[in-house]
Each structure stands twice: as C-alpha cells, then as structure tokens.
C-alpha cells in the first residue's frame, strides 16, 4: 500500500492540513478529499486544462501535480477565485459575453484567465489565444471566451486606474 504524507498548505486563503497517499494527484485531493469539485477532470494528463489551479501565483494542471507537492504552498482554486474581486469581474464577463455553454471547461479557463490578468502580459487577442492554448473547449469555438477575457482585461485596467 502506498505511503501517506501529511501536508499543510494555504487553500483559498485558509490553512489546510490533509493526509494524502504519496501517489495522489492534486486534482484527486481537491475533488475527493476536500470536496472542491469546481476543478474538473477531463483528461488526467495535462492536455485539456479543465483542472487548472493556481499554485504560488502561477497556473498549473492539478492532474499533473502530486498532492504531496502542495506542502507549504499557496493554492487558489475556482472556489477561491470567484470569492475575489477579480473572480467577480471574470464571472460577470464570462456570463455577459456568452463564454459558457456546457460549462465543463469554464472553471479551468477562468483560472487561466485570472493568471493572464495577474501577469498582465497584454490583452491583444492573439496573446489571449496563446494564453489559453492549454484549455480545450468543445462547445464555444473559443470566440466568446476570448471576448470575455479581453473585456475583463479592460475592466481590470480601469479599476486599477481608478
């Protein structure tokens, strides 16, 4: 049987302690141990981005990350994001611009979008397209997702300026 590891980390701003099998992925830990089901399984090998979370300020595929490796780190999931001002801006923009159809890829793309907004590497459409190249969406054809992130970029800019 697999060894377990006791880990401590900050999850959506809250100190969290959990004991996980050493081989467990962060995605499995979030969904099965911590009941945070907003982070989705859709491929389990880093090809689709549905499980995107933020770790120490950068986005990663949680399916590719050993849960044990969360020890001492700062995690943000979709549940934490939507409780923040930037999450609210994104959620409103995604809804208003029609970025959501079946919605299964949406939390992962929201997470990737917050990374774009945080790193602020430019809001040109081509940059945004590249920024979400690791997120697959089967419904929307991406157009309205890109619209949504572009609008959120502008909103975030305005709010920062104000």
């Amino acid at each position: 049987m697999s060894a377990t590891v006791d880990i401590r980390f900050r999850l959506n701003g809250v100190d969290t302690e959990v004991t996980v099998p050493a081989g467990m992925s962060t995605l499995e830990m979030l969904r099965e141990r911590l009941d945070l089901t907003g982070t989705k399984y859709a491929c389990g090998e880093g090809e689709c981005g549905a499980c995107t979370i933020s770790v120490d300020g950068v986005t990663v595929n949680s399916c590719l990350m050993f849960a044990a490796d969360c020890d001492g780190r700062e995690l943000l999931t979709i549940e934490g994001l939507v409780a923040s001002p930037v999450g609210e801006v994104l959620r409103a923009s995604f809804a208003r611009n029609g970025a959501v159809q079946c919605g299964f890829c949406t939390p992962g793309i929201m997470m990737q979008a917050q990374h774009v907004l945080r790193k602020h590497k430019g809001c040109e459409r081509a940059d945004l397209q590249r920024a979400i190249e690791g997120n697959l969406c089967r419904c929307t054809g991406y157009v309205k997702i890109i619209d949504s992130i572009a609008e959120a970029c502008v909103t975030a800019d305005t709010e920062q300026g104000a």
């Binding site: 969904r31 089901t37 907003g38 982070t39 989705k40 399984y41 999931t77 979709i78 549940e79 939507v82 994104l90 959620r91 409103a92 995604f94 809804a95 208003r96 029609g98 970025a99 959501v100 159809q101 919605g103 299964f104 949406t106 939390p107 929201m110």
Partner: peptide
C-alpha cells in the same frame, strides 16, 4: 437581444454539479 445564459454564473463559479461531482 444578447441574453446571457441563465446557468452561466453558476457554471463559471464551478458550483454546477455535473454527474462526476
């Protein structure tokens, strides 16, 4: 008109419970 989907805010929040959830 451009009417946003009624289920979009819930889905974008990761709160929607799909069968997997």
């Amino acid at each position: 008109k451009r009417v946003p989907k009624m289920d979009a805010p819930e889905k974008a929040s990761g709160r929607t419970r799909y069968i997997h959830d």
